[in-house]
Design a protein around this nucleic acid. Structure first.
Lengths: 204, 204
DNA sequence: GTACCATACGGAGGCAGGCTCCGATTCGCC
DNA sequence: GGCGAATCGGAGCCTGCCTCCGTATGGTAC
């Protein structure tokens, strides 16, 4: 993810600075959300804002660098969970990991959904890989009969992103077990077995 | 909602300008979200930014003025729906209206949840009235056995705010019937009758 | 009808943060 | 050690928020 292959390697000072910026960005995004001031990040490294922009031409690029491992990890864990004995449990486990990752940095949920729609973003590829991992788990759970067959991957991601967002808003303000309870209800709604009531009709 | 009772009435020019600002704000918030530039709104009225701030000392105050009727309408409709024959249907109907209102202006969902937590905000009262209307409908549906008894009003609002947010993000990008489908699934999850699966266990 | 002043207006200006551009500096190869 | 490419730094321009105060004007009292 650093230097373009084939090109001459980065100068030592540049490499050093890039690492420092990355480390500082991780801290700043966690503490102040994805909207943290970039000038502040550069300042904390003792570097000028120009240097930050040289290494990361956009906020998205910096975010991408910071989130790359986490999104990849989610993609990998998604593929691993494909071998879990219970397809439904696997999906639930992954979902919890998803929510937990996306709520690490305040504002990430919004960035994520925006990024999935913007194929020009530097973050797009990682997001997509992660989403596909989730889609695989969903499909398997549906084939196994653990999840209703009429929900689509994109829709599922939209739904759990909404939950993640809601959780992000309420963080620490409300009851601690809230996330588990919310996810529990959502998954109850995703269960294929009959329920006494019909879903709300088409809009009147 | 305008001039303080007892005080001398507003000067005619001031009243005129306030109306113009309000009208322009409605347009701007709808077009560019709740973060629309206030200088721009004033400019479109041919007024200085100082004039806008004189009438609406904060962005919240302006939003409050714009949203007051809509939130009140939601509160009123909530109270009316208390007499609907089906408690569950009433809640679903209200929820749909809630989502539809909060997605009128991009960013409103976020503003709303923030406002419910900030009792100093000018918008707080209207938000609370609306929330209480929803809570009443929820309680009734629970008593009637249409909704699981173990969800609490705040939690319910968090949940549907998440859906509203997700819908707001996806607006017009994704499939048109999506909102109904999402709400349908959520309400299936809120149904008290048995479901074959247990909710996800406590975090490992 | 005019004079007065409370009320209202306008926008300059200070602040913050994003991003660009280019002269100054430094690395590291020869 | 010297030179040129690579890198750095921050001034500067932009947008937007909000405050403050000198200027203008509506409307009332006479």
């Amino acid at each position: 993810m650093s230097e373009t292959a084939g090109a001459r390697p980065m100068r030592a000072d540049a490499r050093r600075n890039k690492e420092r910026l990355l480390a500082e960005a991780r801290v700043a995004f966690a503490a102040r959300g994805t909207g943290a001031s970039l000038e502040d990040i550069a300042g904390r490294c003792g570097l000028g804002i120009g240097t930050l922009y040289r290494h990361f031409p956009t906020r998205q690029a910096l975010l991408e660098a910071v989130l790359f491992e986490q999104f990849s990890a989610l993609a990998v864990s998604g593929r691993d969970l494909l071998h879990h004995r219970s397809a439904r449990e696997a999906l639930i486990t992954w979902t919890r990991a998803f929510v937990s990752t996306t709520t690490t940095y305040r504002g990430l949920t919004a960035t994520l959904t925006a990024t999935l729609r913007d194929r020009t973003s530097e973050l797009h590829a990682s997001c997509e890989a992660m989403r596909d991992a989730g889609a695989g788990l969903l499909a398997r759970a549906q084939r196994a009969g653990g999840i209703r067959p009429d929900i689509e991957a994109t829709e599922f991601l939209t739904l759990i992103s909404g939950i993640a967002w809601a959780h992000e808003q309420a963080t620490s303000t409300d009851h601690p077990g809230q996330l588990d309870r919310l996810l529990g209800m959502v998954f109850d709604g995703l269960t294929p077995t009959g329920n006494g009531h019909s879903s709300p009709g088409k809009s009147s």
